Simulated scan of single mutants.
Amino acid sequence: MTIEQQEIKHSPWSLSQVSLWILIPLVLGILISLLIPRPAVGVIYLSDAIYYYSAHDIIQQLTAARNSAEIRAVVIVMNSPGGTVTDTESVYREIIALKQQKPVVTVIEGMAASGGYYAASATDYIFAKASSEIGNIGVIGTQPDKPAVYEDIYSTGPYKIWGMPRDSFSRELEMLKQGFLQAVKLGRGDRLKLSDETILRGEIYSGGDALRAGLIDALGSQSEAEAKAAQMAGIRHYTVKDMFDVAGLKETVVAPMGFFRKDSDGNISSYPAKAGLYLLYIPGLGDNQ
């Protein structure tokens, strides 16, 4: 019998016991890893105008992402012409709140115009397609009518019916325009290559032009946006989850009257159904003047 065989014979641990003690921690480690959820990148789809109903769904998803330990970063897939001032600002503020805790990346599919770009500018990084339509920074609204007297309508003040004088409307329009500009400058920072005057012209840029102007960070796909968000969050081997499901939303709520106006033939137009102030791109509006 060799010296090595004698040592094994007199050892208090057999080979099977040693193997068992190695195997047990390994099995336990695998079981624990299966119980711990993998980190995830949440995806939010904004494929509509931004108004009360669509904003409600988006805010629910942003809130769910902020409160979920499993969701480590978020990608917003954007295709929106913008919407109402108030609802756009609500979405913008919720994105800012989420960004303070987790990376948020936007990928622009068809369009991020006006309020759509307002919301996108709040995110950490923006991808787009070369053919995407981006920008249209500014505000549009319908000026109130001049006060008039109606025999069968009584009001307690000259602006009870119309809300405000025309000069007040103009001041509010200017205030909202400057707020939009500051939001873009804050979000894009040194990446922005356009002057204030150029930004406020309200132009629509293609993806390539928007990249050169600093309105976006790169041309890329949704999967590239997801990978970028994961990188910014410092996670690997992640899953991708639709935040609509994570937030427990069952179906998209549609406004009874719709956001856009219908023409005489029942076709949906690009005009909002109600008069007011909007962060909205209305294609072809100038052609009708």
Rank of each mutant, 00 (worst) to 15 (best):
R188P: 05
R171P: 01
S223F: 09
A225F: 01
R171G: 06
K193L: 05
T198V: 09
Y154L: 07
G208A: 03
G189D: 06
L200P: 13
S221E: 10
A183S: 15
F169R: 07
M164L: 05
R201D: 10
D190K: 11
G163D: 00
V184L: 09
G189Y: 03
K185T: 05
Q178M: 15
E224G: 12
E174T: 13
G157D: 08
E172M: 08
R188H: 05
E224L: 11
R201E: 15
L200H: 13
D190C: 00
A227T: 10
G202S: 02
L173K: 03
I161N: 03
R166V: 07
I204A: 06
F169A: 09
I204V: 15
E197H: 12
Q178L: 15
Q178T: 14
S155M: 04
L181G: 11
G163S: 04
I153N: 02
R191Y: 10
K193C: 05
R166T: 05
D217K: 02
M164Y: 00
L211V: 06
L176Q: 14
Y154V: 10
W162E: 01
G208H: 04
S170I: 14
S155I: 02
K177I: 09
G220P: 10
S170A: 15
M164D: 01
A210V: 04
E151N: 12
P158T: 04
L181Q: 12
G189K: 02
L215E: 10
S206D: 09
A213I: 11
D217E: 09
L200Q: 13
A225N: 03
A213D: 12
A218T: 08
L219S: 04
I204K: 07
F180T: 11
D209N: 13
Y154W: 04
P158W: 01
T156Q: 06
Q222Y: 06
T156D: 14
I216Q: 04
G220R: 08
I199W: 05
I216M: 06
G207T: 03
R212I: 03
R212P: 00
A210H: 07
E174S: 12
D209I: 11
A213C: 11
A227E: 14
A218M: 08
E151M: 13
F180H: 14
A225W: 01
R191Q: 14
Q178F: 12
K193S: 08
R171S: 14
I216K: 04
P158E: 05
G220M: 09
L192M: 11
K185I: 07
K185E: 13
G202H: 04
I204T: 11
